[in-house]
Design a protein around this nucleic acid. Sequence first.
RNA 1: AGGCGGGUAGCUCAGUUGGUAGAGCUUCGCCCUUACAAGGCGGAGGUCGCAGGUUCGAGUCCUGUCCCGCCUACCA
Length: 874
Amino acid sequence: MTTVSPFDRPYQPKDIEQKWYQVWLSKGYFKAETSAKKKPYVIIMPPPNITGSLHQGHALAYYIQDCLVRWKRMLGHNVLWLPGSDHAGIATQNVVEREMTKEGLSRHKLGREKFIERVWQWREHYGHRILEQLHRFGASCDWSRERFTLDEHSSKAVTEAFVSLYQEKLIYRGSFLINWCPRCESALSDLEVEHEEKKGKLWQIQYALADEPGQVVVATTRPETLLGDTAVAVHPEDERYRSLIGKFVILPLLHRKIPILGDVSVDPAFGSGVVKITPAHDFNDFEVGQRHHLEMISIFDEKAHLTREAGPYQGLERFKARKQILQDLQKEGLLMAEQEHLFAQGLCQRCQTLVEPRLSLQWFVKTKPLAAPALRAVQSGEVKIIPEGWGKTYFHWMENIKDWCISRQIWWGHRIPAWYCSEQHTTVSSEAPKRCSVCKSQSLKQDEDVLDTWFSSALWPFSTLGWPRQTKELKLFYPSHVLETGFDILFFWVARMMMMGIHFMKEPPFHEIFLHAMVRDAEGQKMSKTKGNVMDPLDSIETYGSDALRFTHLSLACQGRDVKLSNDRIEGYRNFMNKMWNAARFVLMNFPKETKFSTDFDSSELPVVHQWILTRLQETILETRRSLEEYRLNEACFTVYHFAWSEFCDWYIELSKSHLNAEVLWYTFRELIKLLHPFMPFITEEIWQHLPDKEVESVMMASYPKANSAHVHAMAKKEMEAMMAIVSYIRTVRAEHQVKPSKTIPAVIVVSNKSIFSLLEREKSTMIHLAKLSEFSLSLKAVDTKNYVVGTVGFADVLLPMRELFDVENEKKRLQKELQKIVQELEHIEQKLAQSSFIEKAPKEVVEKEKQRAQELKLRKQQVGNNLEKICSG
RNA sequence: AGGCGGGUAGCUCAGUUGGUAGAGCUUCGCCCUUACAAGGCGGAGGUCGCAGGUUCGAGUCCUGUCCCGCCUACCA
């Protein structure tokens, strides 16, 4: 590889990012090996829906995954990050239908085959766009293994799984009350219904007793469903109504005679204590109906228009029917009261239409037997959920799981592999059967319905690896290491993968589940197209670069907290990229070309500054690795950011200007670039390519830095910290007295501590450089401080000449402030030390530390006091 | 109704074995000091939601309480 772009400034990510992605691709760096001896590390990418383009939530997820994967690759693993996309049944069908509506078309006009063709066209288009976006993210996934939930292999897996579950009696067909979306005209699972609290009305309606005078009053939020009432119910112990149980009432408007039941589900305290029972249109009533063997009358059709059962109201749309029925009740004097009422309404997740409970024939997965082992796997710790808190949510759902309605009355998806003869016998088979399995009839028709999109997703961890065939891949790459995804699909997807994975593979599909937070806008609002606050990741990348966006996402991805994305933040990290860019310029400028790189040079005799940066580098490496291992990516980001900017750039590069050690500078910088790579892959690669002595041709193939204890020098770190404190002090005094940065001043340091004295003596030139000094003199004994401003830093007194340099008033203010701070802290500590309980009970080293601190403060108090006095008198 | 998460500097947030509160952005002052003005140096800014408790010591553990957000739930 050669460097193509010049080292311009500021850093321009655009060309560089696209260029390197293409190089990586062509070199085949992303490919996993099947013959490798290396330990595999596997992440199966959560397949994005093909409904549109990727949003910031995807960006967050894929940046996290890519960071992990690049890190592991550099650690020497055989990495497989397997990409793919999801056909997203209802969601995709809806967007395509919407598009067609604009053209005056509908799926029914087009017909099933043509419509599906059209959706495939859509898929081609958006599938491509999603691919492009993943490239821009820098996603290092193995494109040779890319999969689609509706491709041939996946479809085969779906059929196989369905047939197998059916044979095991874990899939059944039956007529039950399910959630129905009248706009999608399909069944939905419980999860696909969103609940929204809404203000509505509660109406009280009078039902006359059938065989005697009198009446009961029922309360309802849905008066139109009374047309489907087949009973009214009271609590069996309710004194007011006990005598009525077994008698009948006359259903208003339709004048049907229906029984009065006793059922414990009725709450006597609510409303009148009498409930109308509509088994075909209410989940609770359905259960009551089953208990009492009531007739179930469906009054709505698939569009939620009233059926023939509704008598005179047939054909009316459900909301119009409500109006009409209320009017009619009013006319007959049966509407007793109307009051405000808060209730939760169910909306279709995909189109926000009010969902209608509907009695229909559907396919279900029997979930209890599947859920039990999936529950145990997490409880036992075999599978770990991160952050831990989500475990509880997972348990709760798994413990209360209900059967899963998997059939959908749409066209886009996996056709259910069930066939029916004219006798309505069912034949389930992975291939189209020739004869009915019961009556051998040859006239068979396949089920018109398709499967819930999540059914195929549930198989994703192994269907992508070739299942049901026993492939090499399956053996090598199942289970994957971590599933990284959003908590919003914990039930939809994660839980179901757990169930299916354990069932079919006898082993959970992953060891760890890492759930990231929701990406919101700067105001904390959920991004949505209707609100218009969507930040397209591609726009962010255009403006700031992919690395900057990545670093932002990773920095904000604190466990268990929403991510509030703002341009300010991205810009800040864009600046960090530029900072590293310029650091690279400096390093290369100061690097003698013939110097060879080595990692195991002897650092034991080096000056403090070099030992210090080496020490800090090792510490940074350790911390970064630890944070990555614990999925604390934000901490890892902070660690590398702080080291790179505040220590390497601000201090070490500055020092290198006067005290260059090419070997250390070189080593430190190169290790840093490698360390940074998973967090900012493009710029680190570009810089890497400029390095004259690379260990490998691409930084993504380099080995991840490992802390080297031979380069840890604890004493040097302490000494450097002492020096930095003195420099900072001098800088502060200079700044507060408005000494021009270009002006050098003399400084005298009085220090009785011999080791610090010799350190400063050794590092004289360092001090002169950093603090911008004209001269730097040291003394072991106290000197006449008459013409100096004296500050105490650690064990040293720093003397700066006063008269010609300092503003007396400023210094007075500064000292007063400092004194106040010291006094406050000293009081605090002395109070502590005065308590016998503290001395007795606190650990010795803590007490010792406090004592030392008090000692120091006393000294400084005196010193500052003296100075202040001197200034005031002088 | 239950469960979960959060309330820390003007804003956005870090802070995992309890030991003197941190970052970025913002803001103020000085500076184009030859890697970097997308920058450098320095400063200002917090009784860590409230009330108790445990402890020598609590942002950090416990209890209660008030706000905010999310998830789960068939109250007609």
